Every structure is written in C-alpha cells, then in structure tokens.
Amino acid sequence: MPGGGPEMDDYMETLKDEEDALWENVECNRHMLSRYINPAKLTPYLRQCKVIDEQDEDEVLNAPMLPSKINRAGRLLDILHTKGQRGYVVFLESLEFYYPELYKLVTGKEPTRRFSTIVVEEGHEGLTHFLMNEVIKLQQQMKAKDLQRCELLARLRQLEDEKKQMTLTRVELLTFQERYYKMKEERDSYNDELVKVKDDNYNLAMRYAQLSEEKNMAVMRSRDLQLEIDQLKHRLNKMEEECKLERNQSLKLKNDIENRPKKEQVLELERENEMLKTKNQELQSIIQAGKRSLPDSDKAILDILEHDRKEALEDRQELVNRIYNLQEEARQAEELRDKYLEEKEDLELKCSTLGKDCEMYKHRMNTVMLQLEEVERERDQAFHSRDEAQTQYSQCLIEKDKYRKQIRELEEKNDEMRIEMVRREACIVNLESKLRRLSKDSNNLDQSLPRNLPVTIISQDFGDASPRTNGQEADDSSTSEESPEDSKYFLPYHPPQRRMNLKGIQLQRAKS
C-alpha cells in the first residue's frame, strides 16, 4: 500500500489531465453553448442521470443573480465542470439528445442517441419513463405552439383585415386629398384670375382717368384759346370803332377846312374895312368942321342928330352885343352839340362793343353748352356701355358659378359613389376574411389534438420509441430542437415537474 501511493497520485493526475482536456473543448465553445442552450431543457435529463440535484437545479433556474438565459447556462456549465468526467459525459449526452448541432460542434462527431448513462443509472424502465415524459412534454409544447400558431394566424388575419381596411381608408383619404388639391388648384386659379381682372380693371381705370385728364386739359386749352380769340375780336371791334371815330373827325375837319373863306376874300374885306374906317374919319372931320361953321339952329339939329346917332349907336351896340352873345351862345351850343355828338359816338361805340361782347359771350355760352351736351352725351354713352359690360360680366359670372356648381355637385356625387364603392369593397373584403377565418377555424378544430390522450396510444408510441432511437435521429431532433426563430415568436414553456403513473402502461404491456 505505501508503495502504491505514487502510482495512485500519477493516476489521479492523469485523470485530472484527461478531464481538463475534455472540458477544454467545452470551454472553447462556451460562448456558443451559453448563447443557445436552454438550461430548463437540460436539467431534467441531468437530474435523471443524478449529475445534479434539486438544489443545483433551483440555483440554475431560479437564482435572482442569474437574470438572463446566458448567465444560467454559464452557471450550469460551471456546476457540471465540478462534476468531473461524469458531468462531461452526461452533458454531451444531453447535447446529443437536445442540441445535435452543438454536440457536433463540441465533439466533431455525429449524434447517435445511445443514452448509456441513464440506462446504467435507471435501467430501461427509467429510460422509458424519461422518454415518455419527454414525449408528453413535446406534445404539450407542440399543442402550445399550435395554439400560439393559431392565435398568430388569427392575429395575422386580423392584421391583414386591418391592413385592407387601412388601405381602403388610405384610398378614401387619397380621394379626399386629391379632391382637396383640386379644389385648392381651382381656388388658386380663381385667385389668379381675380387678381388679373383687378389689374385689368385698375389699368382701365388709370387709362380712363388719364384720358379724362387729357380731355379736361384739352377742353381747358380750347376754352383759353376761345377766350383769347374773343379778346382779340373785342380788341378788333374796339379798334374798328376808334378808326371809324377818327375817320368821322377827319371828315369834319376836312369839311371845315373846305368851308373856310379864301385869302383873297379876307384881304378884300380888310380893304373894305380900311376904306370904311377912312371914310368914317373923313366924315367925322367934316362934321367937326361943320359944327364950327354952322348956326345955332343947325347946331341944335346936329345935337339932336348926334344924340339920335348916339342912341342909334347905343342901340346898335346893344344889338351887336346881343348878336355877339347870341353868337357866343350859338358857339357854345355848337360846342355842346359837338361834345354831345362825340359822347353819342362814344356811347354808340361802347354800345356796339357791348353788343359784340354780348354776342361773343352768347356764342361762347352756346359753345360751352354744346360742349357740355357733348360731354353729357359721352358720359351717358359711357355709363350705358359700362352698365352693359357689367350686366354681361355679371351674367357670365352667374353662368360660370352655375356651371361650377354643377361640376362641383357632379364631382361630389362621383366622390360619394367612389367612397360608397370603396366601403362596399371593404365590406366584401371583411365578409370574405370572416368566411375564410371561419373555414380555417373549423379546419383547425378538426385537426387539433385532444387534450387527454388514451393510455393505449401512449403505450403504442413508446413501443415504437426504441427503433426510432436507432434510425431516425433527424426526426427526433426536428421535433425536440428549438430554433432561434421559434424563440422569437413563441413563449418558452415550462412543464410541471411531476412523475407519471406507469401502472397503466405496465398492465397494457403485460396484456400485449
């Protein structure tokens, strides 16, 4: 015994090295194993092979420090690593049964499904019991997946119906949107047309105001020219009257000059006056001389005659003075006559000038009245044309509004008919989907599995289990394997941990 101590140590070291070499393959693929292994699927088989106990299973599945599946799978690998070579062998058998691809990844061999460990530990009855539990578990999982698949199909059909409904609603909204954009385009076109009409109206108003201003300026210029013409006519008439007055005065002077006595007659009258003065002096001298030589009687007679002569001279002087006064009065009367005649001529000139001015103003008033009548006639014609244009424009607008209203009513009726057609199509689609759903539900009910399987069917299934373990590994792997896509769409199922009653199965096998 003492001599065998070193050999035992060498043997233990060799086993430990082999164990480390075995687990080295697992550690190399630890990331892939932790990512894809579900500990809840492996722990029943590991407990059946007595590699882990209930406490280890509870620690792996329910520990609060292991929230994710990767953490739980890593903890399970750590626990199996502590179990040595047996933990490695049982772990590979569980991978061979549940995850053939991972088994091939770790060992590089094809899975054979021999279950040597569980046969050694529990015997064939334990293997049968384990396989029966796994089959029931798989059936329950398949039923749950079928239910989930039916629910998802129903949800899918519902979503398809909602999608069709949303599509129809979208078509309806597109119809309304198209109608909205069309009405918006019509409104924009009408606004552009309105702005264009306003611009045209403004341009016409500006043109009309400009023409009116030009016409008023032309009328004012015409009036100024007419006033200048009238003033020139007035000056012409005044000059004609002055010329006529000057002509009359010149004719009067000419007549006075023609009626003036001649120079010879004046000289002859002056000679006669001198001769008479000479004779008068001679007679006076004779009379003076006679007075001195005459007697007293003759002197008395001469005195009487002288007195008579003096009286006659006085009378004559009075007559001469009277004649002079009369001549002066006649001259003054002639001057007054000439003055009055001049005033008369001036008044006649003024009267004729005023008459011509009156005629001029009368003509001017007639011209202004004619212009006013023409302006009123043009204004009435413009008003009439404007009223006709406004009436025609309003009539066109009324007809346009009428046609637009008819078009809008027809478009609304068309839209309502399209919407009604879309709604009826939606109703038809809904009815078809309901009919299809009812038909599929009836087919699913016919094809669904019963909840409680008979014992004979279970025994028959387990009677055929042994050949399947040898020759149909691919079928078992397809039913027991969970793909990543299934984990996305289906909830994980945790079967209840219970042991099955095998009395009925044993009785059935005894009868057979």
Rank of each mutant, 00 (worst) to 15 (best):
I118S: 10
E13D: 12
A73R: 03
Y11A: 15
R86P: 01
M142N: 13
V135H: 14
L95Q: 02
Q85I: 01
Y88H: 05
R86A: 15
T43V: 13
L22V: 07
I136P: 05
L92W: 07
Q139G: 14
M8T: 11
L138N: 10
M132P: 03
E27V: 00
V106H: 00
C49R: 13
D53M: 05
N25E: 14
G87V: 03
E7R: 13
Q141W: 14
N38F: 08
G5C: 13
Y36S: 08
Y36L: 10
G108A: 09
I52A: 06
S94D: 00
T128K: 02
V135P: 01
Y11E: 12
Y45K: 09
E134F: 07
K50G: 13
L102S: 00
R35A: 05
Q140P: 10
E18I: 15
P39I: 01
N38W: 03
M132K: 09
P44F: 02
E101Y: 00
L22Y: 08
H124K: 13
E54M: 13
E57R: 03
L80G: 07
R35M: 04
Q48F: 08
N29V: 05
D146H: 08
S68P: 03
T14Y: 12
L66Y: 14
C28P: 01
K50W: 06
F115N: 15
L127T: 14
P44I: 06
L102K: 12
Y103T: 00
G123N: 15
G108R: 03
R30G: 00
M12Y: 10
L95P: 04
K143A: 10
G123T: 15
I70W: 08
F115Q: 15
Q48Y: 06
L46E: 11
D9K: 10
L22G: 05
K50T: 14
A40C: 08
C49K: 15
G126E: 15
E24L: 00
V51K: 10
V119K: 15
K69R: 15
A73P: 02
N62Y: 15
L46F: 12
F91L: 12
L46S: 09
D58E: 02
R30E: 02
N71V: 08
L131F: 06
S94T: 02
P39D: 02
L80Y: 04
Q55C: 10
D53W: 10
P111W: 00
L46N: 07
A144E: 08
D53R: 07
T43F: 05
K69T: 05
G74A: 02
I118W: 15
T82Q: 02
D58K: 12
S116K: 09
Y45W: 07
D17T: 14
C49T: 12
T107A: 04
M65V: 03
L131T: 00
K50A: 12
D10Y: 11
E7G: 12
V89L: 00
K16P: 07
N133W: 14
K109S: 07
E57K: 08
P44M: 09
I52N: 08
N62V: 01
V90D: 00
S68C: 08
